[in-house]
Design a protein around this nucleic acid. Structure first.
Lengths: 114, 114
DNA sequence: TTGACATATTCCTATATCGGTATATGATCC
DNA sequence: GGATCATATACCGATATAGGAATATGTCAA
Protein backbone atom coordinates (compact mmCIF):
# COMPACT_ATOMS: atom_id res chain seq x y z
CA UNK A 1 0.00 0.00 0.00
CA UNK A 2 1.22 3.51 -0.70
CA UNK A 3 0.47 6.75 1.04
CA UNK A 4 -3.20 7.71 1.11
CA UNK A 5 -4.44 9.95 -1.68
CA UNK A 6 -4.14 13.67 -1.13
CA UNK A 7 -7.83 13.84 -1.92
CA UNK A 8 -8.78 11.30 0.71
CA UNK A 9 -8.76 13.76 3.52
CA UNK A 10 -8.45 17.40 4.45
CA UNK A 11 -5.39 16.46 6.49
CA UNK A 12 -3.76 14.96 3.44
CA UNK A 13 -4.74 17.89 1.25
CA UNK A 14 -3.11 20.45 3.54
CA UNK A 15 0.02 18.39 4.00
CA UNK A 16 1.40 20.02 0.88
CA UNK A 17 2.91 23.47 1.65
CA UNK A 18 1.97 25.00 -1.69
CA UNK A 19 -1.66 24.09 -1.07
CA UNK A 20 -1.55 25.76 2.31
CA UNK A 21 -0.11 28.84 0.65
CA UNK A 22 -2.95 28.84 -1.84
CA UNK A 23 -5.51 28.70 0.95
CA UNK A 24 -3.83 31.60 2.74
CA UNK A 25 -3.82 33.66 -0.42
CA UNK A 26 -7.49 32.98 -0.99
CA UNK A 27 -8.27 34.64 2.32
CA UNK A 28 -7.67 37.83 0.37
CA UNK A 29 -10.56 37.03 -1.93
CA UNK A 30 -11.36 35.04 -5.05
CA UNK A 31 -8.65 34.70 -7.65
CA UNK A 32 -8.09 33.08 -11.03
CA UNK A 33 -5.50 30.34 -11.40
CA UNK A 34 -3.00 32.46 -13.28
CA UNK A 35 -2.89 35.06 -10.55
CA UNK A 36 -2.37 32.41 -7.88
CA UNK A 37 0.37 30.85 -9.96
CA UNK A 38 2.08 34.19 -10.41
CA UNK A 39 1.83 35.18 -6.75
CA UNK A 40 3.25 31.86 -5.63
CA UNK A 41 5.88 31.57 -8.32
CA UNK A 42 4.61 28.34 -9.80
CA UNK A 43 3.44 27.29 -13.21
CA UNK A 44 -0.18 27.50 -14.22
CA UNK A 45 -0.56 23.72 -14.59
CA UNK A 46 1.02 23.32 -11.19
CA UNK A 47 -1.46 25.65 -9.56
CA UNK A 48 -4.33 24.01 -11.45
CA UNK A 49 -3.40 20.61 -10.13
CA UNK A 50 -3.21 21.81 -6.55
CA UNK A 51 -6.55 23.55 -6.91
CA UNK A 52 -8.08 20.34 -8.18
CA UNK A 53 -7.02 18.56 -5.01
CA UNK A 54 -8.34 21.38 -2.86
CA UNK A 55 -11.62 21.34 -4.73
CA UNK A 56 -12.03 17.59 -4.38
CA UNK A 57 -11.78 17.79 -0.61
CA UNK A 58 -14.07 20.80 -0.54
CA UNK A 59 -11.59 23.43 0.61
CA UNK A 60 -12.11 25.53 -2.46
CA UNK A 61 -15.01 26.37 -4.74
CA UNK A 62 -14.89 27.73 -8.25
CA UNK A 63 -17.20 29.80 -10.37
CA UNK A 64 -16.97 31.10 -13.89
CA UNK A 65 -16.53 34.80 -14.42
CA UNK A 66 -16.40 35.52 -18.11
CA UNK A 67 -13.29 34.08 -19.58
CA UNK A 68 -11.86 33.37 -16.17
CA UNK A 69 -12.57 30.85 -13.46
CA UNK A 70 -12.42 32.29 -9.97
CA UNK A 71 -11.39 30.15 -7.04
CA UNK A 72 -12.56 30.98 -3.57
CA UNK A 73 -12.06 29.69 -0.06
CA UNK A 74 -14.45 27.14 1.41
CA UNK A 75 -12.97 26.91 4.86
CA UNK A 76 -15.64 24.84 6.58
CA UNK A 77 -13.58 21.65 6.46
CA UNK A 78 -10.64 23.35 8.14
CA UNK A 79 -12.76 23.51 11.24
CA UNK A 80 -12.21 19.78 11.68
CA UNK A 81 -8.46 20.31 11.67
CA UNK A 82 -8.76 23.15 14.15
CA UNK A 83 -10.90 21.12 16.49
CA UNK A 84 -8.79 18.00 16.25
CA UNK A 85 -5.59 19.86 17.05
CA UNK A 86 -7.43 21.83 19.73
CA UNK A 87 -8.02 18.54 21.51
CA UNK A 88 -4.36 18.64 22.48
CA UNK A 89 -4.36 22.11 23.94
CA UNK A 90 -3.99 21.07 27.54
CA UNK A 91 -1.06 18.90 26.55
CA UNK A 92 0.96 21.62 24.93
CA UNK A 93 0.27 23.80 27.96
CA UNK A 94 1.50 20.90 30.07
CA UNK A 95 4.62 20.86 27.96
CA UNK A 96 5.19 24.51 28.71
CA UNK A 97 4.67 23.89 32.40
CA UNK A 98 7.27 21.21 32.27
CA UNK A 99 9.53 23.61 30.44
CA UNK A 100 9.01 26.16 33.20
CA UNK A 101 9.92 23.60 35.83
CA UNK A 102 12.96 22.76 33.81
CA UNK A 103 14.05 26.38 33.54
CA UNK A 104 13.47 26.90 37.27
CA UNK A 105 15.49 23.80 37.88
CA UNK A 106 18.33 25.31 35.89
CA UNK A 107 18.03 28.46 37.99
CA UNK A 108 18.33 26.46 41.19
CA UNK A 109 21.33 24.64 39.81
CA UNK A 110 23.15 27.84 38.95
CA UNK A 111 22.42 29.16 42.43
CA UNK A 112 23.84 25.98 43.88
CA UNK A 113 26.88 26.38 41.71
CA UNK A 114 27.68 29.75 43.21
CA UNK B 1 9.57 15.17 -7.46
CA UNK B 2 7.51 13.01 -5.20
CA UNK B 3 5.44 13.95 -2.22
CA UNK B 4 7.35 15.57 0.62
CA UNK B 5 8.66 13.29 3.33
CA UNK B 6 6.29 12.57 6.17
CA UNK B 7 9.04 13.72 8.48
CA UNK B 8 9.44 17.07 6.77
CA UNK B 9 6.60 18.65 8.60
CA UNK B 10 4.04 18.23 11.34
CA UNK B 11 1.35 18.63 8.70
CA UNK B 12 2.79 15.72 6.74
CA UNK B 13 3.20 13.62 9.85
CA UNK B 14 -0.44 13.96 10.89
CA UNK B 15 -1.73 13.35 7.37
CA UNK B 16 -1.65 9.65 8.16
CA UNK B 17 -4.80 8.56 10.07
CA UNK B 18 -3.02 5.88 12.07
CA UNK B 19 -0.57 8.44 13.36
CA UNK B 20 -3.40 10.68 14.44
CA UNK B 21 -4.90 7.71 16.26
CA UNK B 22 -1.62 7.12 18.03
CA UNK B 23 -1.48 10.73 19.19
CA UNK B 24 -5.02 10.52 20.50
CA UNK B 25 -4.23 7.33 22.40
CA UNK B 26 -1.17 8.92 23.94
CA UNK B 27 -3.38 11.55 25.54
CA UNK B 28 -4.21 8.75 27.95
CA UNK B 29 -0.60 8.55 29.06
CA UNK B 30 2.67 6.96 28.09
CA UNK B 31 2.57 3.57 26.44
CA UNK B 32 4.96 1.00 25.01
CA UNK B 33 4.81 0.16 21.30
CA UNK B 34 3.24 -3.23 21.76
CA UNK B 35 0.30 -1.80 23.65
CA UNK B 36 -0.27 0.87 21.00
CA UNK B 37 -0.11 -1.76 18.31
CA UNK B 38 -2.59 -3.94 20.14
CA UNK B 39 -5.02 -1.11 20.85
CA UNK B 40 -4.97 0.04 17.23
CA UNK B 41 -5.01 -3.40 15.68
CA UNK B 42 -1.74 -3.05 13.84
CA UNK B 43 1.51 -4.96 13.83
CA UNK B 44 4.36 -4.02 16.13
CA UNK B 45 6.68 -3.02 13.26
CA UNK B 46 3.88 -0.94 11.82
CA UNK B 47 3.41 0.96 15.05
CA UNK B 48 7.17 1.35 15.44
CA UNK B 49 7.49 2.93 12.05
CA UNK B 50 4.72 5.41 12.71
CA UNK B 51 6.25 6.29 16.05
CA UNK B 52 9.56 6.93 14.36
CA UNK B 53 7.93 9.50 12.10
CA UNK B 54 6.17 11.12 15.02
CA UNK B 55 9.40 11.24 16.97
CA UNK B 56 11.34 12.79 14.10
CA UNK B 57 8.91 15.67 13.87
CA UNK B 58 8.88 16.06 17.65
CA UNK B 59 5.31 14.99 18.33
CA UNK B 60 6.36 12.15 20.55
CA UNK B 61 9.14 11.53 23.01
CA UNK B 62 10.41 8.21 24.29
CA UNK B 63 12.13 7.06 27.42
CA UNK B 64 13.38 3.72 28.56
CA UNK B 65 11.59 2.03 31.41
CA UNK B 66 13.28 -1.24 32.17
CA UNK B 67 12.80 -3.63 29.33
CA UNK B 68 10.25 -1.35 27.70
CA UNK B 69 10.41 1.92 25.86
CA UNK B 70 7.59 4.28 26.74
CA UNK B 71 6.25 6.74 24.20
CA UNK B 72 4.60 9.95 25.34
CA UNK B 73 2.91 12.91 23.78
CA UNK B 74 4.89 16.04 22.93
CA UNK B 75 2.05 18.19 21.69
CA UNK B 76 3.84 21.50 21.39
CA UNK B 77 4.13 21.28 17.61
CA UNK B 78 0.42 20.68 17.25
CA UNK B 79 -0.05 24.23 18.38
CA UNK B 80 1.20 25.38 14.97
CA UNK B 81 -1.50 23.31 13.29
CA UNK B 82 -4.12 24.71 15.61
CA UNK B 83 -3.05 28.25 15.01
CA UNK B 84 -2.74 27.86 11.27
CA UNK B 85 -6.20 26.42 10.92
CA UNK B 86 -7.51 28.99 13.39
CA UNK B 87 -6.48 31.65 10.93
CA UNK B 88 -9.47 30.59 8.85
CA UNK B 89 -12.05 30.82 11.59
CA UNK B 90 -13.80 33.89 10.30
CA UNK B 91 -14.05 32.25 6.91
CA UNK B 92 -15.83 29.16 8.04
CA UNK B 93 -18.24 31.39 9.94
CA UNK B 94 -18.66 33.37 6.72
CA UNK B 95 -19.39 30.12 4.94
CA UNK B 96 -22.20 29.44 7.33
CA UNK B 97 -23.57 32.92 6.80
CA UNK B 98 -23.55 32.35 3.08
CA UNK B 99 -25.28 29.05 3.66
CA UNK B 100 -27.97 30.88 5.62
CA UNK B 101 -28.47 33.31 2.79
CA UNK B 102 -28.67 30.41 0.40
CA UNK B 103 -31.28 28.65 2.49
CA UNK B 104 -33.29 31.85 2.81
CA UNK B 105 -33.00 32.21 -0.95
CA UNK B 106 -34.49 28.75 -1.36
CA UNK B 107 -37.29 29.78 0.96
CA UNK B 108 -38.08 32.78 -1.20
CA UNK B 109 -38.03 30.64 -4.30
CA UNK B 110 -40.48 28.13 -2.88
CA UNK B 111 -42.76 31.01 -1.87
CA UNK B 112 -42.56 32.33 -5.38
CA UNK B 113 -43.42 28.90 -6.72
CA UNK B 114 -46.67 28.80 -4.79
C1' DT C 1 -15.17 30.20 -38.26
C1' DT C 2 -11.04 31.90 -36.64
C1' DG C 3 -8.09 33.85 -33.31
C1' DA C 4 -6.76 34.83 -28.71
C1' DC C 5 -6.88 34.09 -24.13
C1' DA C 6 -7.64 31.13 -19.77
C1' DT C 7 -7.52 26.83 -17.75
C1' DA C 8 -7.34 21.78 -17.44
C1' DT C 9 -5.41 17.40 -18.59
C1' DT C 10 -1.99 14.04 -20.18
C1' DC C 11 2.41 11.97 -20.17
C1' DC C 12 6.69 11.49 -18.01
C1' DT C 13 10.23 10.60 -14.25
C1' DA C 14 11.97 10.36 -9.67
C1' DT C 15 10.73 9.51 -5.21
C1' DA C 16 8.60 8.47 -0.85
C1' DT C 17 5.69 6.22 1.07
C1' DC C 18 2.57 2.08 3.82
C1' DG C 19 2.00 -2.52 5.07
C1' DG C 20 3.80 -7.21 5.71
C1' DT C 21 7.41 -10.56 6.75
C1' DA C 22 11.72 -11.64 8.32
C1' DT C 23 15.43 -10.31 10.84
C1' DA C 24 18.53 -7.50 13.68
C1' DT C 25 19.38 -4.90 17.80
C1' DG C 26 18.82 -4.06 22.73
C1' DA C 27 17.92 -4.88 27.50
C1' DT C 28 17.09 -7.94 31.44
C1' DC C 29 17.62 -11.82 34.24
C1' DC C 30 19.48 -16.44 35.28
C1' DG D 1 27.36 -16.39 28.30
C1' DG D 2 22.59 -17.76 27.02
C1' DA D 3 17.62 -17.44 26.95
C1' DT D 4 13.92 -14.31 26.60
C1' DC D 5 11.28 -10.45 26.01
C1' DA D 6 10.73 -5.74 23.69
C1' DT D 7 11.61 -2.97 19.94
C1' DA D 8 13.73 -1.39 15.67
C1' DT D 9 15.30 -2.02 11.06
C1' DA D 10 15.75 -4.09 6.28
C1' DC D 11 13.65 -5.67 2.38
C1' DC D 12 9.81 -6.03 -0.75
C1' DG D 13 5.69 -4.68 -3.50
C1' DA D 14 2.13 -1.69 -5.00
C1' DT D 15 0.85 2.90 -5.37
C1' DA D 16 0.36 7.83 -5.36
C1' DT D 17 2.36 11.50 -5.68
C1' DA D 18 4.73 16.64 -7.41
C1' DG D 19 6.72 19.05 -10.99
C1' DG D 20 7.75 20.04 -15.89
C1' DA D 21 6.57 20.12 -20.81
C1' DA D 22 3.33 19.55 -24.23
C1' DT D 23 -1.21 19.54 -25.38
C1' DA D 24 -6.24 19.56 -25.02
C1' DT D 25 -10.41 21.86 -23.68
C1' DG D 26 -13.23 25.87 -23.04
C1' DT D 27 -14.79 30.60 -23.59
C1' DC D 28 -15.30 34.90 -25.60
C1' DA D 29 -15.14 38.33 -29.44
C1' DA D 30 -15.05 39.88 -34.10
Amino acid sequence: MARAATTSDVFNAIAEPRRREILVLLRGGERPVTELARELGMTQPGASKHLRVLREVGLVRDRRAGKQRLYGLEARELRAVHEWSGGFERFWNESFDRLDEYVQGLGRESQEEQ
